[in-house]
Design a protein around this nucleic acid. Structure first.
Lengths: 244, 244
DNA sequence: GTCTTCCGGTTATCATACAAGCGAAACACC
DNA sequence: GGTGTTTCGCTTGTATGATAACCGGAAGAC
């Protein structure tokens, strides 16, 4: 079994990295023109093709911008409009940090869903819960139906950014969650019942147009889920706080 | 004055878009091998160079993966690890949606900051507030110091993902905010005093390790800021909600 | 002095060729 | 026949040279 294929190191990637670092390090000021492809190809001792491929990468990363007949220019706002999670984050603490991000956004999604959800959106949430129950009864793990539940809530918020960002986070957490789930055999009947109750609490609050209750229910659900997966840290804000 | 340069449409971009859409639409299953560069170049009636540039783009977008001698393959997790804001979002509603996202995350950051902030982190927040006051008294707009305040709070949460994501959101909102600010002449003395008070409320709560109060203070601040910029919609969750 | 034209340099595209990696078929050998 | 090796074709990676489109400025026309 091959774990990590040597992956022939591509020249263009090497050049793109070096150029990208140089730009980020400030060797080229914002708006400044980079050396021409010909000059770069001589400096790096590679063909112009390689330089072009490297440039193409830098363009995708929104670091440079090229204009025919003028040259390549360093963009003023490096990598704006682009967000990447540093690593698939396999460390427990990194995972907890991503989870914190998710709790915050998903709580907001639930809250906004309670404000904006219309009948079809509520029906979609209901349907996802129903399908999850069916899947669990059929012996499936229900991960896909669970995903749909959270997606339905996010969609009900009528905020496309919330929805797409949560989808993004979910995609990054999914496999790790699947792994943790298979490890910590979390399939006790009472767990299943608990999850169902938590989902229904969210649905009820959303349907009742009670934003605060929806947010609390969603946070509680995620907090419980985190616990069930054995990922819970001890740095959550205390639920109770002395109020003078 | 040229507002939108016609920007010669690049062939490679066109091809990349079409291929990307085809992949996202599911014309090619995950893991499946794409047609060879030669075949694609014939199908699109362009040179292999253009196909290569388009592929380079798709690789950067994490849609495909190429291996020498084998071909190009559709990645199983399309665009995971990469999040882009659809558009710089100039529409008022889009802006409000991004703001909702920011409120959620920044509130969580303040809450976590109250839990995890150590002395240096608190000092950094204090320093940012101080510098903001100095800038305002010097007649500057204080946008940069304000940025540092929010960055300091995010850093105090000790969650790097929260910090980098907020930096990302901030970079996208900044220019729009600057524009709105210059429009709605928001430089009344009482505004300045109000902002200062709001910042200090956040600082006080964080320093007192009171997460809920910190979150409320931050949300209140952002809500006020949104109002001052004339961007506030009427879909915020009601502050009071009847509790049985 | 102002407008037009031309020119050098740059990127965008095309065409061709060779090198390197890979899989499978053909082959030699036992 | 079964097994290990070689060869071959296809693919992407890289190199090279040429042409087209584009731009800014300089030279020239008026």
């Amino acid at each position: 079994m091959v774990l990590s294929i040597p992956r022939a190191p591509r020249l263009s990637d090497e050049v793109a990295s070096r150029l990208g670092e140089a730009i980020r390090a400030g060797d080229f000021a914002a708006g400044q023109r980079l050396p021409s492809e010909k000059e770069l190809s001589e400096r790096f001792a590679v063909s112009r093709m390689v330089i072009r491929e490297a440039m193409s990468r830098l363009k995708s990363d929104e670091l440079v911008e090229t204009r025919q007949g003028l040259g390549a220019f360093v963009k003023a706002d490096p990598g704006k409009g682009l967000f990447r999670l540093a690593e698939p984050a396999l460390s427990p603490s990194g995972l907890r940090h991503i989870f914190q991000l998710r709790v915050a956004v998903e709580g907001a999604a639930a809250s906004l869903a309670a404000v904006h959800a219309d009948a079809p959106a509520i029906a979609a949430i209901e349907k996802a819960i129903e399908e999850l129950r069916a899947d669990l009864e059929a012996g499936l793990d229900g991960a896909e139906a669970d995903r749909r539940f959270h997606q339905a809530v996010a969609a009900a918020s009528k905020n496309p950014y919330l929805e797409s960002f949560l989808a993004f986070l979910g995609a990054n957490l999914r496999e790790v969650i699947a792994l943790a789930r298979s490890n910590t055999r979390e399939r006790y009947p009472d767990h299943i019942a608990a999850v169902q109750l938590e989902h229904e609490a969210v649905l009820e609050a959303v349907a009742a147009h009670a934003p605060q209750r929806a947010e609390r229910a969603m946070r509680a659900h995620l907090s419980q889920a985190q616990e069930r997966l054995g990922l819970s840290g001890h740095d959550e804000p205390a639920e109770r706080e002395s109020v003078p």
